[in-house]
Simulated assay, not measured.
Amino acid sequence: MRSDEVDAVDTRLGTRLAELRAEHGWSLGELAERSGVSRSTLSRAERAETSPTASVLNRLCAVYGRTMSQLLSEVEAAPDPVVRADAQRVWQDRASGFVRRSVSPPHPALRGELVEGRLDAGADIAYDRPPVAGLEQHIWVLEGALEVTAQDTVHHLGSGDCLRMRVWGPTRFRCAVAEGVRYLLAVVRP
C-alpha cells in the first residue's frame, strides 16, 4: 500500500475517532480515563498526526463497543457485497510490525468477518481487553508460526493449525520465527 493511501486512512480514522468521542459527549480527559490511553495520544490520533497502534485502537474499540473491523469500515464508503483482493483495506501498526487486511466486505450489521494478519519476526502485540466481551475468534495459521496467549493459556500454532476461542480478557499475539507469520482470523461478534 502506498504511503499516501495509508495517510488518507489515518486522516479518515482520526476524523471518525473525534466524531465518536463527540457523539458520546466526552472530553479528551474523559476518554483517556475510560480507555487508559493518554490524552496526548488521543489528541494526536484524532488530528492524524500519528497512526494509532493496534493496542490503542483495541482500547478505543472496547470503549466504543466495536470490533476493529467495524471501526475501520466506518471510515470507508458503503461497501459492495464483493471486495476484490486489490481493494481490501490494509492497516498497518508500524511500531509493532503488524499488518491487518480486511478480507470480508465490510458491513456494520453483520456479525462475522475475515481478517488476514501478518506479523514480522519478533512482533509481540498485547491487548489488555477484547474490543467486545465474549468475541469469538478462529485463528488459522497459513504460513509460519504464532503464539497466542488467552486466559493465561499459551497456544503454539504452526502452519495449518487453527485455534478457536472466546475472548473475555487479555490476549497476546507473538511471532517468534524468523520468517514472520501470516494467519486468517475469523471474528464473530456475540
Rank of each mutant, 00 (worst) to 15 (best):
E33T: 07
R21S: 08
S102G: 13
Q137C: 05
L42S: 01
A121G: 07
Q151D: 11
D124Y: 02
A123K: 04
L72C: 02
S104V: 02
P52L: 01
L114K: 12
P190H: 10
L142E: 12
D124C: 05
V132A: 12
W26R: 11
S38F: 08
V90F: 08
L57P: 05
S38H: 10
L163T: 03
R2N: 09
V56S: 13
G14P: 08
V177D: 00
D161A: 00
R172I: 01
P190Y: 06
D161Y: 01
Q92W: 10
L135T: 03
D152T: 10
G25I: 10
P108D: 10
A178T: 08
G144S: 08
H24G: 14
L163G: 00
D7E: 15
S69Y: 05
A77R: 13
I139Q: 03
E19I: 06
P79V: 04
Q92E: 13
S43T: 12
E113Y: 07
A48K: 05
D93Q: 14
L135Q: 05
L146H: 01
E49M: 09
Q137M: 08
D7K: 14
P52S: 02
Q137P: 02
V90P: 04
A54Y: 14
Q92Y: 09
L163K: 09
G14R: 13
S27H: 10
D161L: 00
L184E: 00
V56A: 04
R2Q: 10
T15C: 08
S55I: 07
G158Q: 05
E147G: 00
L110N: 14
P131K: 03
R16F: 05
T53D: 02
R34D: 03
M1T: 06
E76C: 10
R89D: 10
A178E: 14
R118Q: 14
D152C: 11
E147V: 00
E179I: 07
R129L: 02
S35F: 10
L60G: 01
R164Q: 15
A8I: 09
L42G: 00
R182M: 05
T171V: 07
V154A: 15
Q137F: 03
E19P: 07
R118E: 11
R39K: 15
R39P: 07
E74T: 05
